[in-house]
């Protein structure tokens, strides 16, 4: 509110000042990090993002040519293989990142929401992978749909989220869920950059 008054009542200027204050560009793209950022464990986050980029790129190609393409085209099958292995790596790196952050207790010093958004990214990614398996149009999709429907139905969600409906699952997989993941990952990164990398756990009382 005080900022708003100082900005002469302009909401636009108030927002700009808030961004400049909370996330100046030297925090968004710093050229230096605390010296304690010196472990391969820190790399799992960035390689998870790199894997996600390739998931998205290969997914865009698969979506562009349509759901049947990769079953009949050798080139399509290669793109599907790239999608499949990027997803595997994305999950591997995301889980390793989660282990690393957990054992470093990096939610300390006001970073709890960063942890929580990360956990939500993980859970939404599981849902996205699930719809992806359902959208493959092969035996695995058929069986996963038939087998998973009972669990979804038991929660009541099956009335609105029909795993046997290819069109619904495909739409969620290629449109809505990628937007959710990308947005959440962006929020997660902004949180990390805003607050900086957490200090090591104190070993002796200071």
């Amino acid at each position: 509110m005080a900022e708003g008054r100082r900005a002469g009542g302009s909401w636009t200027r108030a927002l700009r000042r808030m961004i400049e204050r909370e996330l100046p560009t030297e925090h968004l793209l710093p050229d230096q990090e605390p010296a304690y950022v010196a472990s391969w464990v820190y790399v799992f986050g960035v390689v998870a993002i790199a894997a996600l980029v390739w998931v998205m790129v290969s997914g865009v190609v698969l979506a562009f040519f349509g759901p049947q393409w990769w079953h009949v085209s050798p080139q399509g099958h290669v793109v599907n293989s790239i999608h499949f292995w990027s997803v595997q790596l994305f999950f591997i790196f995301m889980v390793l990142h989660l282990w690393g952050q957990y054992f470093g207790a990096t939610w300390r010093d006001g970073r709890a929401t960063t942890w929580m958004v990360g956990v939500v990214v993980f859970l939404v990614s599981i849902g996205t992978a699930f719809t992806g398996y359902l959208a493959q149009q092969n035996f695995a999709s058929q069986w996963i749909a038939v087998n998973a429907k009972d669990a979804i139905n038991s929660t009541g969600a099956g009335a609105f989220f029909n795993v046997l409906n290819f069109g619904q699952m495909y739409g969620l997989h290629v449109m809505l869920l990628p937007i959710v993941i990308t947005t959440l990952v962006a929020v997660h990164l902004v949180q990390v950059r805003m607050r900086g990398v957490v200090k090591p756990i104190e070993t002796e009382p200071s």
Partner: peptide, 19 residues
């Protein structure tokens, strides 16, 4: 196994340019 191996390696391998 690969995941556990990668995590163990990340913990013990020295990070380049930092040492």
């Amino acid at each position: 196994g690969v995941m556990l191996g990668l995590f163990a390696l990340a913990l013990v391998l020295p990070f380049p340019g930092r040492r």
